[in-house]
């Protein structure tokens, strides 16, 4: 029987992949990888603000992540040079978060725990937040699935079928902010984008339909969480990066089979 903290870590990671599998698929399909990065970087500012104001950690992170995701979506919608705008916003938010944290009174806040996550320190309360957040994201995506998917294929097709592509974008923005907020304790701000993109990218090869890809991405994410935790315990390496490396290894391993599976 593994120790309780290992079990909590595994459960938290697996819970998170329920959201990152399908959401990561949309991130890949819609080429939003940088968008995910920006939202996650902004979350660090959210952490600093939460400590400064005494707000609950998850609430602060969610609010700032949401604000960042919404401004990036608005900029993208207006046709600005999106990657530049996102770059400016994301890194400014990250720097502002680290900057602001140094002014915090009392105990020095160790922000690196939020940059890289600390899945082995997950508490029961964290576990509840992760599962509730992931369930909410999964429920949101499942509810909006036909519209989201149609708008991803073609916005006019979606409009002609009675869906508003702007509303579908908003759904994804909200899902992304929520996922970042609940994952910040687990894999941290710098690696959550990796957990969105890498399992979904690895799932592309063997999948024939969007639904199959979303499920496969979730399963690959779960496998990466377990393999990463085992790796981390055996080699005494940090858990978050170990999980991401395990996902990257799965991605690399499936590459030679890609053509054969088509």
């Amino acid at each position: 029987m593994p120790d309780a903290f290992i079990l909590r870590a595994a459960l938290a990671g697996i819970g998170l992949t329920l959201a990152t599998g399908p959401l990561g698929s949309f991130v890949v399909w819609r080429r939003m990888a940088y968008f995910g990065d920006a939202t996650a970087h902004a979350a660090i500012l959210g952490v600093a603000l939460a400590f400064a104001t005494g707000l609950p950690l998850y609430a602060g992170t969610l609010v700032v992540a949401l604000a960042m995701a919404a401004s990036v979506a608005a900029l993208a919608g207006r046709g600005h040079a999106t990657d530049t705008a996102i770059g400016v916003l994301a890194h400014s938010a990250l720097a502002a978060g680290l900057f602001a944290a140094s002014f915090l009174p009392g105990v020095r806040v160790d922000l690196s725990a939020f940059l890289f996550g600390d899945i082995l320190a997950v508490t029961r309360a964290d576990l509840a937040v992760v599962w509730a957040g992931s369930a909410a994201v999964l429920g949101l995506l499942a509810w909006r699935w036909p519209g989201l998917l149609t708008a991803t294929v073609n916005e006019e097709l979606a409009q002609a079928a009675g869906y508003d592509p702007r509303r579908e974008r908003l759904v994804l923005t909200l899902a992304l902010a929520l996922t970042v907020a609940v994952s910040i304790r687990i894999v941290g701000a710098l690696l959550i984008a990796a957990l969105l993109v890498i399992p979904a990218a690895a799932a592309r090869g063997p999948s024939r339909t969007p639904e199959a890809m979303a499920v496969t991405a979730t399963l690959i994410g779960m496998l990466a969480v377990i393999a990463g935790l085992v790796l981390s315990l055996r080699l005494d390496t940090p858990a978050g990066p170990s999980i991401v490396l395990a996902a990257a290894a799965i991605f690399a391993l499936q590459l030679p089979f890609r053509r054969a599976m088509r």
Binding site: V153, A161, P210
Partner: peptide, 13 residues
């Protein structure tokens, strides 16, 4: 990056 069979496409939305 979006896997989509012809059959699945016809079922959109």
């Amino acid at each position: 990056t979006l896997p989509m069979t012809v059959r699945r496409f016809l079922s959109l939305p």
